[in-house]
Amino acid sequence: MQQAWRCSIVMFQGREILEKRADGAVAQQALAHEARMLEKLAGLHVPELISFSPDRAVLQRAYVAGQPLSELRREYWTRVLDQVEEALVRVHAYGFVHGDLRPDNIIVSESAVSLIDWEHALHLGMVIDQVPHRAVTPGLSHPRLIWGHGVVDTDLDVYPIDQMRRRANEKDEYRASEKAPEKITGPV
């Protein structure tokens, strides 16, 4: 799926908000889905939906000040991921999985953890190969999500958390989107 997103931070009624625009039919559908998810999951460690204009393909949501997990030192990841798991218990109780958990979609502030980018959220029980668009991150996404097998269950969120925990404890640090360092064998 090719998405064209344009995000900017703007002032709205005296506060900073994030404005997300979608170009193209697929991106517009994903943006509408994200708006519905933010509305349904209000208060569950997700940004507040300010407004959504399907005609203009513009979503406005509360700006979440903080740092993505990917920018924090790995020694803090375990504590943050514990908070993410707690938040997801409530999301799962509402019948959804995030579907695109990765360090860049977890924002950490001094007071809370927020999960962003809900355009790929999935309903529990859906047949995976019937999901029109799936987000996958090599090395993090559950293999069933990547290959389109089975049904959507909470393991699709648990698996990437486990992978991030494993990475937090690795000595060789690299991002999920980067190739793992190659091991040199034989004489140098």
Rank of each mutant, 00 (worst) to 15 (best):
Q60C: 12
Q60H: 13
Q60G: 00
R61S: 14
R61K: 09
R61F: 11
R61P: 13
A62C: 08
Y63E: 15
V64E: 13
A65G: 04
A65C: 04
G66F: 00
G66M: 00
G66Q: 01
Q67G: 09
Q67S: 14
Q67C: 07
P68R: 03
P68C: 03
P68F: 02
L69H: 02
L69S: 03
L69E: 05
L69Q: 05
L69N: 02
S70F: 10
S70P: 10
S70I: 11
E71W: 05
E71S: 10
L72W: 07
L72Y: 01
L72I: 10
R73A: 09
R73G: 06
R74V: 15
R74F: 14
E75P: 09
E75R: 15
E75T: 13
E75H: 10
E75A: 08
Y76M: 13
Y76V: 13
W77H: 03
R79L: 15
R79T: 15
R79I: 10
R79D: 13
R79Y: 10
V80Q: 05
V80E: 04
V80I: 09
V80F: 05
L81S: 04
L81A: 06
L81F: 01
D82F: 12
D82Q: 12
Q83F: 10
Q83L: 14
Q83E: 12
Q83D: 12
Q83N: 09
V84N: 00
V84M: 01
V84S: 01
E85W: 08
E85R: 10
E86P: 14
E86F: 09
A87M: 10
L88T: 06
L88D: 01
L88H: 00
V89L: 07
R90C: 09
R90W: 15
V91Y: 01
V91L: 03
V91R: 01
V91M: 03
V91K: 02
H92N: 00
H92G: 00
H92L: 05
H92R: 05
A93E: 15
A93H: 14
Y94E: 06
Y94D: 11
Y94F: 11
Y94S: 11
G95N: 07
G95H: 09
F96D: 02
F96W: 09
F96K: 04
F96A: 05
H98N: 07
H98P: 04
G99M: 08
D100Q: 01
D100H: 02
D100K: 02
D100V: 06
D100W: 01
D100C: 05
R102I: 04
R102E: 09
R102C: 07
P103M: 00
D104T: 15
D104K: 10
D104G: 07
N105I: 12
N105E: 08
I106R: 02
I106S: 06
I107H: 05
I107G: 05
V108T: 03
V108E: 01
V108D: 01
E110N: 12
E110L: 14
E110S: 07
E110H: 11
E110K: 12
E110G: 08
S111M: 13
S111P: 13
S111K: 15
A112M: 15
